[in-house]
Nucleic acid binder design. Structure first.
Length: 345
DNA sequence: TTAAGGTTCCGCCATT
DNA sequence: GCAATGGCGGAACCTT
């Protein structure tokens, strides 16, 4: 990543945001976490990203100091009038799924959208976006708990509760709270390329791209008696993924027969032990590849796949590309653009 | 990529 | 009578 500033400097204009000003909405009952991640991605000084990086401002929906979750008071930079200058408007979680959206806010968002602004909602912020009518006929997502409420509030919106975010071009929506980070990183990836998104993700100490949808985070009923017995074993399995584990050994540790262990495991996790181990090992392998571990044999041994051939087999089947291709893809988007332009020159 | 041996998973049924 | 458990056998999958 040493050459990142140069790469960004030479980046084609099509990859750059047309208008770098990001405006975050602030209102009474503001969700502090979602406002915070918006600030973290777009509001922190990042001189290493070059002069074209986002500029950040906040716009108050209502006058005066506003209350945010956690007892904070917030004074915004400007009012709704400032939205007309923004290239992107971020709407953190709204104060309630049934809370009315002020007419002035709806009008300001529609006007900004017509002027070319991208509208981005996190979690229940989608209810503000839906009120504008700009989501009608489009796919959108929100926290899985609010999916039915969104369908009821705006039947014309195609609600997909099983994804982390939906990009419909000029309107983008994300699932609950932390999925907002995935959407904001996706926006950075679209605007500045994969290497820039990876760099921001690394500074956040998070994965640059999470696979899978919300279903994996929806609570499953856990049987009170046997489920509790397996929880320590799952922790132990996570801590020694690099070692081979047999069903017989795991069942013995859980003090159950193999047959009962398989039943209890599926009830608790929704997966078989083999599938659970494979998924956990794939995530470990991805982290090792992203961290720059050199040989695939080493990645395979440290993630528990035993051999590079076995790692390739599972990785390709789960992720869709081989581990080497996955590692290359972390940088190829931006560097490839740069190389192609140099070739053309 | 393929093949073969080993392992896992699950339906079924008997037992507790 | 019901629910939980455990063994068996075969198909599917994994590993080398």
């Amino acid at each position: 990543l040493a050459g990142l500033p140069t790469i960004i400097e030479n980046m084609p204009k099509s990859l750059r945001p047309r208008n770098a000003l990001v405006a975050a909405l602030v209102y009474d009952g503001l969700c502090t976490f979602e406002f915070g991640i918006t600030t973290e991605i777009f509001g922190l000084p990042r001189p290493e990203m070059g002069a074209d990086w986002y500029r950040f401002t906040t716009c108050a929906v209502e006058p005066g100091p506003l209350r945010a979750c956690g007892g904070l008071s917030v004074i915004a930079d400007g009012t709704l009038d400032a939205l007309q200058h923004a290239g992107m408007i971020v709407i953190p979680g709204w104060r309630g799924v049934d809370a009315a959206v002020p007419d002035a806010l709806v009008a300001a968002l529609i006007e900004a959208h017509q002027a070319g602004a991208r509208l981005v909602s996190i979690c229940s912020g989608v209810f503000v976006l839906a009120a504008t009518g700009l989501l009608d006929g489009k796919r959108a997502t929100t926290h899985w708990r609010y999916a039915d409420a969104l369908r009821a509030a705006r039947p014309a919106v195609i609600v997909d509760p099983d994804v982390l975010y939906v990009d419909e071009g000029s309107v983008l929506t994300s699932a609950g709270s932390a999925a907002g980070l995935d959407l904001l990183l996706h926006i950075v990836r679209c605007d500045f390329g994969a290497a820039a998104a990876n760099k921001v993700a690394r500074r956040l100490v998070m994965s640059p791209h999470r696979e899978g949808g919300q279903a994996q985070f929806i609570e499953r009923p856990v049987p009170a008696r046997p489920g509790g017995r397996l929880a320590p074993l799952l922790d132990a399995m996570r801590e020694r993924l690099e070692r081979p584990m047999t069903i017989a050994e795991l069942a013995r540790q859980a003090a159950m027969s193999e047959r009962t262990f398989l039943r209890r495991f599926r009830e608790m996790t929704g997966m078989t032990p083999g599938a659970w181990l494979a998924a956990a090992r794939i995530e470990t392998a991805k982290a090792l590849l992203e961290a720059g571990v050199a040989s695939l044999e080493d990645v395979a041994l440290r993630s528990g796949f035993g051999s590079a051939a076995n790692l390739r087999h599972h990785f390709r089947r789960t992720v869709g590309v081989g581990p080497a291709a996955y590692r290359r893809r972390l940088l190829v988007d931006v560097i490839g653009e740069n190389d192609a332009r140099q070739d053309a020159a």
